[in-house]
Simulated scan of single mutants.
Amino acid sequence: MSPRSQGYVFVLITMCIWGGFTISSRLSAQWGISAWDITALRFALAFCILMPILIYKKDTAFLWKKQPFLLAMIGGVGYCLTSYSAFHYVPAAHAAIFLNGCIPLCTAVAAFLLFKEPFDKHTWGSLVIMLSAISAMSFFLYQETGVAFGFGDLLFFLSAIWWGVFTVLLRQWKLSAWHSMAGVAIWSAVIYVPIYLIFLPKKLSEPEPVHLLMQTIFHGVFVVIVATISYVEAIKRLGAFKTGSIVTLAPFMAAILAVPLLGEPLSRAVMCGLIGMAIGALQPWRWIMHKDSLQQQLDRQKKQS
């Protein structure tokens, strides 16, 4: 198998897991598994897998730096609690709109506020499209329900802010994929799980044991570990732009699948939000420009040869 084919295989694996995150998180809410519980189970299992590996490899020194700890509090505990909680209030399609759709925008804003990185023309274009889509969606939602946005939408947007800040810090600090993944999982478990055990409410006796097991394995192993590794391997073979653009489709596809799988409605307002946010997040015009730049490079190489 060629490196390019391998890259697409890794992209497919990542898309399945990222799309599955949306479906499984909504199922978790329907099965009565609280955000407190699934967050603790997710990081506890990841800790039990990753910590022995780090000890065996004698690769624990990086954990004592401030960067892994801060990343864990932002992209680990903060992100998980708000995103898992949001699925208890709104359908899965809202996650694609207010979480995954807003992540590119929140990342650009975080980069500007934290490190003074200016917006490029693509970001401004996305901003206009996304604000138009959200405005239209809020108008239709108000017509349908009398409420423009719900509490779950606010939680998803807060999750997008967490992830945007996390992405910018990760890029600025230049941690490897392995160290960032392991650091987030381990510090999240070390800080959050004791607080959960001592202070936070637990409803582990209410859901079916098989449901708890399924969610723990999927989120603790596949989301935390497998998806991170497959995403990084895909970037190595296909590049960051192509990989990121393709993988971004996963949550929007999951939102469509949630209609038959979970019986969730797909109203005019939600469709408007999905289409607009997908265009703003994917920035399809960059695909055309990206191809043109590649063709120009090939043409220059031909002339030189």
Rank of each mutant, 00 (worst) to 15 (best):
L105P: 10
V128Q: 12
G101Y: 05
A92R: 01
S176L: 08
L141T: 08
G152H: 02
T60D: 12
T82S: 14
L158T: 13
K121V: 09
N100C: 13
S159L: 06
A95I: 06
L127K: 12
I129W: 01
S85I: 00
Q172C: 00
G101S: 12
A72G: 14
V90L: 02
H122Y: 14
C106G: 04
Q67M: 10
L99F: 14
K65N: 14
C106Y: 11
L70K: 07
A96W: 05
G152E: 01
I191V: 15
L54Y: 01
G78R: 04
V165M: 03
P52F: 05
W178F: 07
A182W: 04
Y56G: 02
L141K: 06
F87K: 04
A96K: 05
A182M: 08
F112I: 03
L114P: 07
A108I: 08
A92M: 03
I129N: 05
W178G: 06
G78L: 06
Y142H: 13
W124Y: 15
G146C: 11
A136R: 00
S188N: 05
L175A: 09
D59Y: 02
V165I: 14
K57T: 01
I134F: 11
T82Q: 02
F87Q: 05
W162D: 01
S132L: 08
A93R: 05
Q143I: 05
G75K: 01
G75R: 01
S188H: 11
I134C: 12
V77R: 09
V147R: 10
S83R: 10
M137D: 02
F139P: 07
I186S: 02
A61P: 02
F157T: 07
D153L: 10
L71A: 07
D59M: 03
K58Q: 06
A93W: 06
G164P: 04
E144Y: 00
K116W: 08
F140Y: 06
G76T: 07
A108K: 00
A108V: 04
G146Y: 11
S188I: 12
S180H: 00
M137Y: 00
D120T: 06
S138F: 15
D153Y: 11
D59W: 07
L170D: 12
L131T: 12
T167Q: 05
D153Q: 14
H179C: 05
L175K: 10
L131I: 13
N100A: 14
Y84A: 10
I186G: 02
M51S: 10
M137K: 01
A61K: 13
N100T: 14
Y56S: 01
W64C: 09
Y84T: 05
